[in-house]
């Protein structure tokens, strides 16, 4: 193990970890706001990845340039899914919301994943641009530009969400509704509207993550499931609380997974995240980065 190898591994861990964080932030947002556990979150990410892929391969639109269109499209998909599928759960108590949303979104994930296989086949799709292989050489490390820009955009996405929630009237109403929806209603906040838009925003962030993912990795219809699990692990790691905590938990998972290659080999890499998931639930179920209220 040379210093370069370790550095290289860390860089890869951080770049993929930032995407884990981005994926988990959306999942955490809707869980925090409306107590929905949306396991179809990864499927929305997959839709974003395919949207970018098709725009690139059919029309030659660069994935970085198509980000606004892809995010808007999946934002709309989120709005429609919420109205058609998830809005009925809002009448339930918190506990029933968690269980029912889990079941509904699981079914939704199966349906959408299989529709994706039907329409787009299970073939691996890759986006290869002229800059795909370009790397930045730095202290003997090779840093691919697409990964670095992915990291930067993931941070920007999370920062934008943070600013939305803390600086705008809408964002404050979302936080208020997540703390006490009844009191929020008494303040004249349309709680259903905050739910609807939180869901759509979470979908758009998943789409952003999907786009950044397709730039470095192959896309298939089944990546949705894998990403839902990653996002879930990160949310459990972080615990409910600050968005920043979710992001750092994502980085942590990415780094631990990458470094574990040295110890358990690449084939067991996936297991490491799940082991951490179980350990955290056993010994610190409130999460590692929880905020005291």
């Amino acid at each position: 193990m040379t210093a370069e190898a370790i550095g290289q591994t860390l860089i890869y861990g951080i770049t993929i970890g930032s995407l884990y964080g981005l994926a988990a932030v959306g999942l955490s947002l809707i869980f925090g706001v409306m107590s929905y556990l949306n396991v179809a979150h990864g499927t929305l990410l997959m839709l974003g990845a395919y949207a970018s892929y098709w725009l690139f391969s059919l029309y030659g639109v660069d994935p970085f340039l198509s980000i606004p269109v892809v995010m808007m499209t999946v934002f709309l998909v989120g709005l429609i899914l919420y109205v058609l599928v998830f809005s009925t759960l809002a009448k339930l108590e918190t506990d029933s919301r968690i269980k029912n949303s889990l079941l509904i979104s699981f079914g939704l994930m199966l349906v959408l994943d299989n529709l994706a296989i039907l329409f787009w086949t299970a073939d691996e799709r890759t986006v290869t641009t002229f800059y795909s292989g370009a790397v930045l050489e730095f202290l003997g490390l090779r840093l691919p530009y697409v990964r670095l820009s992915g990291l930067a955009l993931a941070v920007m996405g999370i920062l934008a969400l943070h600013l939305l929630l803390t600086k705008t009237y809408f964002g404050k109403s979302v936080r208020a509704a997540s703390i006490d929806w009844e009191a929020a209603t008494l303040m004249g906040i349309k709680v259903n509207k905050t739910y609807l838009f939180s869901f759509a925003i979470s979908s758009a962030l998943a789409a952003l993550c999907g786009t950044l993912f397709c730039l470095s990795y192959a896309v298939t219809p089944t990546i949705g499931e894998a990403w839902s699990i990653k996002a879930l692990i990160v949310v459990v790691l972080a615990g409910m609380g600050r968005i920043g905590g979710v992001f750092f938990a994502g980085l942590l998972l990415g780094v631990v997974e990458s470094v574990s290659v040295f110890f358990v080999g690449a084939s067991y890499q996936e297991v490491v995240g799940l082991v951490i998931f179980v350990l955290v639930l056993m010994f610190k179920p409130q999460g590692l980065f929880t905020m005291k209220v």
């Binding site: 009237y169 109403s173 208020a176 009844e182 929020a184 008494l186």
Partner: peptide, 23 residues
């Protein structure tokens, strides 16, 4: 209505609570 127990948004700042009153 000022509900029983106040029902403030406890993890938000005082000013944010007031702003939400004027929603």
């Amino acid at each position: 209505m000022v509900p029983e127990g106040g029902r403030l948004f406890s993890s938000m700042s005082v000013v944010e609570n007031l702003e939400l009153g004027a929603f």
